[in-house]
Write a protein that binds this DNA or RNA. Structure first.
Lengths: 334, 334
DNA sequence: GATATTTACGTAAACGTTTACGTAAAATAA
DNA sequence: TTATTTTACGTAAACGTTTACGTAAATATC
């Protein structure tokens, strides 16, 4: 018993495949009577269209590819959730790819996506290397960037203004009376990480506070690196009363290091994070942090990508708004 | 300038498409000279095979579908990571679906997956309703369950032994001298949740400790429900010195409620969780919990599914091993 | 009632592959 | 040398759709 095709339906309904296709697509060109016959045949045979055959002829697969450095991170999975949500609403499926930040894997994935004829690609949280760009360009399909951007190439992106967000996060600490402020940055050399320390440095200058290289430590955005960086800072840096961590994970790692020293948060040290992962509100005390609307960013990216796929000419980018969510890790000093 | 097809390559290399296909697949039936000609033409034209056309004829798409109740949870995303990893290794792509635990959405996804002709499906963390099973069965493709199982239908699954794990988690508390032990269970009515309270109940009996209905509260596995359940327990339940939470998220929610009361963990109250999410090790104090090898479960599921797709007859299930990871939320009562 | 238009279809090509089958030339065997 | 096998291809059908084009019948127009 083979899977019924449109031909079987046509035969059963005593019409041509063209007619079946027409009624299935609600086009015109058939009487109500034949429509009923066809629909009944579909029902009886349990016919389901084959999207592969359809894709072959339409040159559209209704599928997009999404690349993450680490799908399992709280950060990525929120974005994925958003992307998937609107993709599904709009009739697209999403293929996930985990690049593990490896160039080779990434290129492999791009090749697979090309062969699978995806209609578009979302690329997230990593710098878009030249070779990626070339591959993507050859594929001739729209791309949107999330949480990253390319200065070299003109590609629409969705992200927050990192510099400004970092500026405001640090400013928030200053407003709360802190003047000795350390920072744990993301990977040294990474562009977004870089932008964040610029923001941090800028506020300090604007408030006539001296920027001390010795008060900034570098992690890789992940929890463990935050803990280590904090241990370093606690041991070696000039004393400080507050910390800005460039990711929530690192902030929480830092909190662990602080607690381990028997210090209290925010009594002995204030901390502000960055991201507002689900994590942030469930730690104790709940983490004050700058909120990035991750799921929303995913939704916007999906939206934009699909518009592009459907021939929109609008290649604009969007800077989504961030804001500080005040929880309980920052203490106001008198 | 259109995308080159196998025909273009054939023309450029002055051979037939059949020959091109043969060299591309490393079959036999061509001289070394023509092989070189073909490869060169491929190179020059920048030809890339079209997996859609291939899928149409092979009736294989090298794609699997994966259904999650919530892709963005730390739980799901670890499983996804594992699934994706081996799928990619074995030449399969994965389409993610977020059911949001809604029957209608789930059915919609199953239909999409059917139309897209996926070769297999992984279904995770939800009970497999009859209608899902029927749809899956009609599709005629292999399915594997993760973190759930069906008593009604014969479908391979990958999960831990929940009852035993719950038994051991509670036993661990008893071994540490606790006898007044509360529990926060997952959704009342859910099978896995049910199994876990059975395990809990069983140890108590085996140690001649009276099981008190009033010492078990019900959440939905998520953080907030854990906090609420703990507040309830703290207010209404007979006093207890330890808690077994059926998920790490709930355990952490409970910790928040405890801290909010000014109590200390583990000094005033011991807590053991369940899952060992990334979360667990980064809270303070780090959470003692029962480890489920989530990524590994994903890998195993992927492995099994692909074997099934490739005609393995082995429909066995696997119970993966769990173990308690001792961190700092359980105090030994002298 | 003749002509023009619209409706309701059917036919067949096309999408880009894979592969069964056929065949001429080359290699081997007798 | 001739007969046989093997090699190296080419031809064409098939996968399941969509859609341009054609056409007979029905309907509308005058």
């Amino acid at each position: 018993m083979n899977i019924p095709t449109i031909k079987d339906v046509a035969k059963a309904a005593n019409v041509s495949v063209a007619t079946v296709s027409r009624v299935l697509h609600n086009l015109s060109g058939y009487s109500n009577k034949t429509k009923l016959k066809v629909l009944q045949a579909v029902e009886e045979l349990g016919y389901h269209p084959n999207a592969i055959a359809r894709g072959l002829i339409n040159k559209r697969t209704q599928t997009i590819g999404v690349l993450f450095p680490d799908v399992s991170s709280g950060f990525s999975s929120d974005i994925l959730h958003g992307i998937e949500e609107v993709a599904h609403e709009k009739g697209f499926s999403v293929i996930v790819c985990n690049t593990a930040e490896e160039g080779k894997r990434t290129m492999k994935y791009l090749q697979v996506l090309r062969e699978k004829q995806v209609d578009g690609v979302v690329f997230t949280s990593e710098v878009l290397k030249d070779e990626y760009y070339q591959a993507l360009k050859e594929m001739g399909i729209p791309v949107v960037l999330v949480n990253t951007q390319s200065h070299k190439y003109m590609i629409p992106y969705v992200k927050v203004d990192d510099r400004q967000a970092a500026y405001q996060a640090t400013a928030y600490l200053i407003q709360n009376g802190h003047r000795e402020i350390a920072m744990i940055s993301g990977t040294l050399g990474d562009t977004v990480a870089g932008t964040r320390v610029e923001g941090y440095r800028q506020v300090l200058e604007d408030h006539d506070i001296q920027f001390l290289e010795s008060r900034v430590a570098y992690g890789d955005f992940r929890w463990e690196s935050g803990r280590k960086a904090m241990e370093l800072l606690l041991a070696d840096a000039p004393p400080f009363t507050a910390l800005f961590a460039a990711s929530d994970e690192m902030a929480i790692g830092a909190m662990g290091a602080v607690f381990a020293k028997g210090m209290r948060i925010p009594d002995d040290l204030s901390i502000i994070g960055y991201d507002d992962l689900t994590l942030a509100k469930i730690t104790f005390p709940p983490l004050t942090t700058v909120h990035q609307p991750l799921a929303q960013m995913g939704r916007l990216a999906s939206d934009k990508l699909i518009a592009l796929i459907e021939n929109s000419q609008d290649v604009s980018s969007t800077i989504v708004s961030h804001h500080i969510v005040e929880r309980q890790t920052v203490r106001s000093k008198g």
